[in-house]
Design a protein around this nucleic acid. Structure first.
Length: 669
DNA sequence: AAAAAAT
């Protein structure tokens, strides 16, 4: 690592601060020194008597922040009490976001942020690598992942690394990796990080829960710290992120944001998340509560908690945080404080782009998580708009990373429009966290499903340890079905909650928290929860209704057996799922699972093809580079040279907007 | 056919 990097950050932050406002040097609360930075030699923090400096962001948007101060929190004029309250209170806009105290007594932007430590206390020893004991590692047990097959293709693939020490990610990032208790890189990290650090585009197929998020976050954060970017423009209220991470659900964006915050702690790299779902302006909500005496908070499991609400400002803020409201105003405010890495769902990002609050001109890194979902029928137009029709640099001018546990071939073909001379990486086989997830299929008629589920849950409760029920995630097909099953479970003595797209964002997040905490150890979910969500301790995934698509099945069962733990996946199969018989059988055989004889019979009876699963080319491997299959008459290896304007040259191909499936089918028929 | 994602 170039030691000059930290120095240059320190100096630049120092200079910026001093030139903007001399009064900063007066001791304030911001002279707090985080535990892991105490007792450091003076050389580590040159020119500063206080803590290691924290830049507002690499965006250098401090001036914009100042402008926005007057409109913050409803503004001092219109909401005087709240405005005053905010100053000393240090509440965070979203309750999950960047945090920070507002010390603006002097009226200027005397606002050096104190970054919330996402690791809690007590990380001093780990951060400095002292007393670190691999045996006591509380982190992920990655050993089961060590010998899974890895396949790469593409030109000049950088060799994998075996340890984090082999990669120069920078000292600050290394500290955060230690704080996360990551001992050694997972297979996807071993391969993907050198590829991205080497400046290459990447299409990566890897089981979720195996360290995917870190695999793209580490090189992005490291790259942003390393490079000297030209000063970003300061036009109106537009911000210019350097990296964009897109994901298909709000919860997943939130999760990625939380992780990215950990990785970027104290690095000065600013991460902001933007997603929708907050219909009410938070200010309206707060004003409303101030005039109420009681507020009934109805939990999904029908218990009602009454919160006495006096017209005290403190209570308003507590309530505010409790509700965890994340409105558009919150996003805009966060953005104005500067952003280097923007994590977003597509809808909200398009909104922000159209409002010209975000520009993609300076994007150096683009990551699509759950890329196959992002490019399916529902999302593809939005993604294409963001990547090809706004102001994002063309492929070749930016680095693009696509991650998913499954990569159907025609999705690969769509995705290649966004990539330049990319490397394909497949870690493990789809569905084969082999030894970690035990898959069972049971024949259950539609009408017997509820009682059968009840049997499973009773058995589980009896076997369970000390009355504490293991977390069970139940997937159903429809939103209505989710509500009705949840209700049925509750009245039958199984505390359950539900997450689906008809619930408000607050209800969704509350449900997720309630499930994670074990308060309601059963979560009934639609496919909104199928992908990417990292919920520790999910012991059992029940496919109450099987999906029509084998890839969805793969993603669903991936919610258990995560991070080196074992898991059980039970599927209820009946005549309604015939189209899944063959791919399911093949997948289970692939993963060395016991396939019931009756399912094999169904599979052999179903004529090959004749259903939509045929589009997968018969391969239950997500892990195959479609460029190697040669039958498409389009040699994508030539893409590299086209780099600069390739995106538009191939942009909006004839198959855009649908109809690609038939072409692909004929290609392998 | 359903689900998700902006207001």
């Amino acid at each position: 690592m170039r030691t000059s990097w930290a120095d240059s950050v320190a100096n630049s932050a120092y200079e910026t601060v001093v030139s903007d406002n001399n009064s900063l040097r007066r001791p304030t609360r911001s002279t707090y020194v985080p535990p892991h930075l105490r007792n450091r030699s003076a050389a580590d923090t040159p020119n500063l008597s206080g803590p290691a400096p924290e830049r507002t962001s690499f965006n250098g948007n401090a001036g914009v922040s100042q402008l926005s101060r007057s409109s913050m929190g409803g503004g001092g004029g219109t909401k005087p009490e709240l405005g005053r309250q905010s100053q000393g209170y240090g509440y965070t806009g979203s309750g999950r976001g960047g945090g920070g105290c507002w010390n603006n007594r002097s009226g200027g932007w005397d606002r050096r942020e104190r970054e919330v430590n996402p690791f809690g206390d007590n990380d001093e020893a780990d951060a400095r690598g002292q007393a670190f004991n691999e045996q006591e590692n509380l982190g992920i047990n990655f050993d089961p992942y060590q010998d899974i097959p890895v396949e790469t293709s593409g030109e000049n693939v950088p060799p994998p690394v075996n340890t984090f020490a082999e990669i120069d990610l920078g000292e600050l990032l290394d500290q955060n990796i230690r704080r996360c208790k990551y001992v050694k890189p997972t297979p996807v990290q071993r391969h993907a990080i050198p590829i991205v650090l080497g400046g290459r585009d990447l299409m990566a197929c890897a089981q979720t829960g195996s360290g995917k998020t870190a695999a793209f976050c580490f090189p992005i954060i490291s790259g942003i710290m390393r490079e000297q970017y030209v000063q970003r423009p300061r036009i109106a209220r537009t911000v210019y992120p350097l990296a964009l991470i897109l994901s298909p659900t709000r919860e997943l964006s939130c999760q990625i944001h939380d992780e990215a915050k950990k990785f970027s702690y104290q690095t000065g790299v600013k991460v902001v998340v933007a997603y929708g779902g907050a219909p009410i302006n938070q200010q309206v909500v707060v004003d409303l509560f101030r005039n109420m005496l009681y507020f009934a908070f109805i939990y999904a499991n029908y218990s009602i908690i009454l919160i006495e609400l006096e017209c005290k400002r403190e209570r308003c803020l507590v309530l505010h945080k409790l509700l965890d409201i994340f409105s558009l105003e919150d996003v805009l405010r966060e953005l104005e404080r500067g952003v280097d890495i923007l994590v977003a769902t597509p809808g909200r990002l398009v909104d922000l782009l159209e409002r010209a609050r975000v520009s993609l001109q300076m994007i150096r890194y683009l990551a699509l998580d759950e890329a196959d979902r992002m490019l399916d029928m529902g999302f593809e137009p939005q993604i294409r708009k963001i990547v090809e029709q706004m102001d994002m640099p063309n492929r070749g001018m930016r680095q693009t990373m696509l991650f998913s546990a499954t990569f159907p071939r025609e999705i690969q073909r769509l995705a290649s429009d966004f990539l330049s001379n990319y490397i394909f990486l497949a870690v493990g086989r789809v569905g084969s966290s082999t030894d970690l997830i035990v898959q069972r299929v049971e024949f259950v008629q539609e009408s017997d499903k509820r009682s059968h589920l009840m049997d499973l849950l009773h058995a589980q409760r009896e076997n369970g340890a000390h009355g504490k029920q293991a977390l069970t995630l139940v997937f159903v097909e429809t939103k209505k079905g989710a509500d009705s099953l949840e209700h049925w479970l509750c009245i039958n003595g199984f505390p359950a909650t539900t997450i689906h797209g008809d619930r408000t964002q607050q209800e969704r997040e509350l449900a997720l928290r309630s499930f994670k905490s074990g308060r309601t150890p059963i979560l009934v979910a639609t496919d909104v929860a199928a992908r990417g969500l990292d919920i520790p301790h999910v012991a059992h995934v029940v496919n109450f209704d099987l999906p029509n698509d084998i890839d969805d099945y793969v993603h669903r069962i991936g919610r258990t057996g995560r991070a080196g733990k074992t898991g059980l996946a039970t599927a209820f199969f009946n005549e309604g799922n015939l189209s899944l018989a063959r791919p399911l059988t093949e997948l289970m055989q692939e993963a060395s699972q016991e396939v019931p004889a009756w399912l094999t019979r169904y599979a052999s009876r179903v004529p090959y093809g004749g259903n939509k699963n045929r589009r997968y080319g018969g391969g239950r491997f997500g892990g195959r580079d479609f460029r190697r299959e040669g039958s498409l008459g389009r040699n994508l290896d030539h893409y590299g040279g086209g780099g600069g304007n390739g995106g538009t040259a191939y942009g909006l191909p004839g198959n855009y907007g649908g109809g690609y499936a038939s072409g692909v089918m004929s290609a392998w028929d």
